[in-house]
């Protein structure tokens, strides 16, 4: 699982970015950690990857990664998707760090769309790739106005969106990028993680960093900070999860992906967190379709 350490590729500066850029990003990170949930502008750089593929998260990771770190990269919970594989390979090459697929072994976890099922511990850092850092953007297109709303904690509009959802559908149907209130002060976009993962952010012992490359914003949630999902008193927050068990490992508590397996309507539910699923299968847990070829290259 764990790739052996090599040295960084001498053709690049360590961790790809130049030292001044890393210092600039670290300053933005320190400010972000000092003001939980507040979006700090930073001079986002071009990365050897298209915007929308994780350039913000990569810059944050590049700024904090050191020789002793162990990096895990996930995309939609999986360690083996294109985006995760190429970002992991990138850092293995330019910073020479060890990489892993095990949540428990990693010191830095860069993620897109998920928080690992295994609870994070103190000392770990999770870096989120963020497409749209501004939770109010769809409601208020003017940047000047949204900044003022954050400054004055004027969040009535955010509730209007939730109100409309309930009026139209009878419940809050927002199931990802579900807005949260950080430290009782700033409303924050948790990046497009499923609302299922929102409770994991609350009082997490790990440091949570968010990078939006195209939008040039960095924000953070320090360890043990309250992260509360917005809701109404009579329509409380309800994290959404498919009412199924994982067909490979039988887990009834993890977040599931629905996978179409053939062209005759066949489908199965599997854990979106591949490391969690594989670890459970190794430990002997078996789901209804255990041994299905879909798991063949997934570890166990």
């Amino acid at each position: 699982m764990t790739a052996p350490p090599r040295g960084p590729d001498p053709a690049y500066n360590e961790a790809y970015l130049d030292e001044q850029t890393k210092r600039m990003i670290r300053r933005a990170l320190l400010k972000a950690i000092a003001i939980p949930g507040y979006q700090v502008p930073f001079a986002s750089r071009e990365m050897p990857l298209a915007y929308g593929w994780g350039t913000g998260g990569m810059q944050v990771t590049a700024a904090i990664i050191g020789r002793d770190d162990v990096l895990k990269v996930i995309d939609q919970g999986a360690d083996d998707t294109t985006n995760a594989v190429s970002i992991r390979r990138f850092f293995a090459r330019v910073s020479g760090v060890r990489t892993t697929e095990r949540t428990s072994e990693a010191t830095i976890i860069q993620t897109r769309h998920r928080i690992p099922e295994e609870p994070l511990r103190a000392g770990q850092i999770i870096v989120y790739q963020v497409p749209q850092p501004e939770p109010l953007r769809k409601l208020e297109p003017r940047e000047v106005e949204t900044r003022r709303m954050h400054a004055l904690a004027d969040y009535g509009l955010m509730y209007v969106k939730l109100y409309e959802d309930i009026a139209r559908h009878g419940r809050i149907t927002l199931s990802y990028d579900y807005p949260v209130l950080v430290g009782g002060r700033y409303v924050m976009a948790p990046s497009p993680i499923p609302s299922f993962d929102n409770p994991k952010m609350n009082r997490s012992p790990a440091l949570q960093l968010f990078g939006a490359g195209r939008e040039k914003r960095i924000y953070a949630v320090p360890p043990y900070t309250s992260v509360e999902s917005l809701a109404f008193e009579d329509h409380p927050f309800h994290p959404w999860r498919a009412d199924q068990a994982c067909d490979l490992c039988g887990s009834t508590t993890s977040y599931l992906d629905e996978v179409v397996v053939d062209d005759r309507g066949g489908r199965m539910f599997v854990c979106s967190d591949t490391d969690w699923c594989a670890t459970r299968r190794v430990a002997g847990y078996r789901g209804a379709q255990a041994g299905h070829p879909i798991a063949a290259d997934g570890g166990a």
Partner: peptide, 23 residues
Amino acid sequence: VSAGGNVGERLMAAGARHWGRIR
């Protein structure tokens, strides 16, 4: 935004957090 949401916005901005009462 719906008529109800328009009227409710001021209430929510003033701190109302009970959907049924706002409506």
